[in-house]
Design a protein around this nucleic acid. Structure first.
Lengths: 139, 139
DNA sequence: TTTACTGTATTATATGACTAATACGGTCGT
DNA sequence: ACGACCGTATTAGTCATATAATACAGTAAA
């Protein structure tokens, strides 16, 4: 069963998108694997303190993308193939990397300073994990 | 007069926030300076193809933050001090850097790969400037 | 089989973002 | 003074997000 321990709100972005991102990133990281069972919509909505319909929307979109399979009565499970994972990783990385380079460029930050800033913050967030569920959801 | 040549929509984020970011980042970059005149709300809304009220909302928030000053009849001008610029730079950098490190970490990317990805994309976006107005808005 | 959970669907309401259409008064150049 | 532009304000409508309250059918374990 997938754990949502490390779920953190991404500020202003819609909740259903946060759920999408959380699961997709987990899949890319390998902490969420093919066949893994997801918490039920009602369960997850209670855990996150949000409306069941919001969870339903996210799960519906995941199913439309072919990343999960749901059956009435039974629950929902991840359906991941290496191909999907590759596509997912490229999609997510492309968006994230593009946005940060665009942002730093607009602020007149040069390549060296950009790399330095990332490296600095990497260490800080290592000391203060800001959401360390240890990633031990499996077996 | 500030130029909005390089203005690009940041996908799904609200337009008024995009305007805020564009101006703030320009200020941090030094392409928008103290005393600079902004285009009128009507002019800018026409240029961007959006509603005047949306521009008004952004300008209103900029004024609430003390970054611009407006007078009925006359236009609006930037009111930047070194202190404001420092605070602005730190605020923007903190948000951007934090979001990218958080995203890459959630995907299981390590420090070396993160730096490599940024560096790669930096060069690509250098060849294909993705919004190069030459930044010659001044004097 | 009954009970308790699943996924799924529907209708209603509230709020924020954005658009639209106006209106009022201040400033500036002629 | 006049006209063309400024900032400012108000009211209304649309759309997406999120909540709320149900309802129905399928599955699984007791």
């Amino acid at each position: 069963m997938i754990s949502f321990d490390t779920f953190r709100g991404t500020e202003g972005t819609p909740i259903y998108q946060q759920i999408l991102l959380f699961i997709k990133r987990g899949a890319v990281a390998g902490t969420i694997r093919d066949g893994d069972e997801l918490p039920s919509r009602r369960m997850l909505s209670a855990l996150l303190g949000i409306n069941p319909n919001t969870v339903q929307k996210a799960f519906r979109m995941l199913e439309d993308e072919g990343l999960i399979t749901s059956q009435p009565g039974a629950g929902s499970n991840m359906t991941l193939t290496p191909q999907k994972l590759d596509a997912l990783k490229e999609e997510l990385l492309k968006d994230d990397i593009r946005s940060i380079t665009s942002a730093l460029r607009q602020m007149g930050i040069d390549r060296e300073e950009a790399l330095r800033l990332i490296e600095e913050n990497w260490q800080e967030s290592e000391e203060e994990p800001a959401g360390s569920g240890e990633g031990e959801e499996h077996e």
